[in-house]
Design a protein around this nucleic acid. Structure first.
Lengths: 262, 262
DNA sequence: CATTTTAGTTTCATATAGTGGAACCGCATT
DNA sequence: AATGCGGTTCCACTATATGAAACTAAAATG
């Protein structure tokens, strides 16, 4: 059931993911049912993870859930590995100025991961959104990032796309997407023309560092009811300005201190 | 440097924690410096974690950071393992009614983990707070939860406290705290009388399920400038009401569906 | 009440995966 | 050309994980 996972660590993480997949407290037997691991192996893996507090076990109901240590680690991950803490004030400003929903995403493996979100109208349930994943080939942020990927990485990402047709506008093959990527590079930003969800449109601009590497992307999302691509287009200079500022700031960030070695 | 970590998984997690500790991109040699693991072992561990996307490696700078997979997993963790998603609407209401800062915390190991936070006045940087840890013995939520722990778990938690004197009010030994816990059980809620930070006070109420097990705690925090313990006291019925509602809702939550087995 | 089933836990000989000292590589510095 | 340093690879050795099967407790069944 789970993908190739060499090493004990890989297996343990697969189990973690398995538990995560249930999105609720889960029994041993349920896990066994959706795993190829033999009973004893799965059991020990669960024990190990529990002892390590990556899982927590509720003796009352005999169920496992993801442990708090994970939340702590993620806290640290979010603070250091993602653009989110740097981008935060800029996103605030952007959402304030535009009055639209702002997303910050990063590319991981072949998926888009939303690491932060801002909604001008109401203070959003943010944590519940951060960490969410989406397809790369049919989202504004995904395409914006892919457009500036080096060829070897791009091919890697492309083969992993599902090309599922979410809407009539969805680009469902590599050729179509590649053409789109060229257009994106020409104009410097990407659109989502209701490709993922009907009625939902967005403009996205990649965040790239000095050496051109893609760090993430910012997008402004709206609906066809409230807005239009033309209207969103007017935000582009503002977004690009913001991505540039964020990119600039990441340069300094890399080594805030060069720990003095005694 | 790292604590006892049996098993490969334990070691890998220790390395993860090590990277997390730096709170910034970190070089191999730096990690080697703060780890007992021999070079090759550490190296392989890092490779494994990187391949598993728990770490990400930046070839430009030759540094490791925590990977986004952690953020994804945490997304799931937050949704299932913690009280946060259930408590969310109640916290909103509570912060709205009181106009004060509301914290939701859980007890893990011997530490308090803040899993959500609400601030009535301004929309808070929430993610940056969730996952934060604090000492149990000198926080309102910590004491509220400890007060209702079964004796064996309590002793376990108590021996792990640091008893550092943060302020004049800090309870710096087990005897003093145990006396306080009795008082908390009597009145049903805990205070933080500037025990952790000067000028910061709070009332906290534990969240307990039907069988009496402590699930977490809610607190309302304020400062001596804006408020007083007496003033906070008036919120107690409201908080207790909220904790009861949250506790009730967790009962249903445990098994939303019993996955039909074909 | 005895019996079967189900769910979870332990055992143990075996195989695998992890270990780490040492050698190696590439690059910057001298 | 030589030295030093950060990082990577090798490989004999062994600690660790493995998983079939046996076991236990508790629930379901007759």
């Amino acid at each position: 059931m789970q993908s190739k996972a060499d090493g004990t660590v890989g297996k343990a993480l697969a189990v973690l993911e398995l538990v995560a997949g249930f999105e609720r407290p889960v029994r041993f037997s349920e896990l066994q049912g959706s795993s190829d691991y033999p009973k004893a192996t799965l059991y020990r893996l669960l024990q190990t993870l529990t002892k390590q507090r990556m899982l927590s076990y509720d003796p009352d109901s005999g169920t496992y859930t993801l442990g708090v240590r994970l939340v702590c680690l993620a806290h640290a991950a979010w603070k250091t590995s993602s653009l989110a803490p740097i981008a935060r004030p800029y996103m605030d400003k952007l959402s304030e100025k535009t009055g639209e929903t702002v997303h910050l995403a990063q590319l991981d493996h072949a998926q888009v991961i939303y690491v932060d979100k801002r909604n001008a109208s109401q203070p959003l349930p943010m944590y519940s959104e951060a960490g969410k994943v989406g397809p790369a080939y049919c989202t504004g942020v995904g395409k914006a990032m892919m457009a500036y990927l080096p060829e070897d990485q791009l091919t890697d990402v492309l083969v992993q796309q599902s090309w599922h047709r979410f809407t009539d506008g969805t680009l469902t093959n590599e050729a179509a997407l590649r053409a789109e990527l060229v257009a994106i590079r020409e104009r410097g930003h990407a659109y989502d023309r209701e490709e993922h969800e009907p009625g939902i449109i967005c403009v996205a601009v990649p965040i790239r560092n000095d050496s051109g590497r893609v760090l993430g992307a910012l997008s402004i999302t709206s609906s066809t009811l409230r807005s239009s691509l033309d209207k969103l287009d007017s935000f582009v200079p503002l977004i690009r300005d913001t991505t540039n500022q964020i990119a600039r700031e990441t340069q300094n960030w890399r080594f805030p201190e060069t720990k003095s070695i005694a």
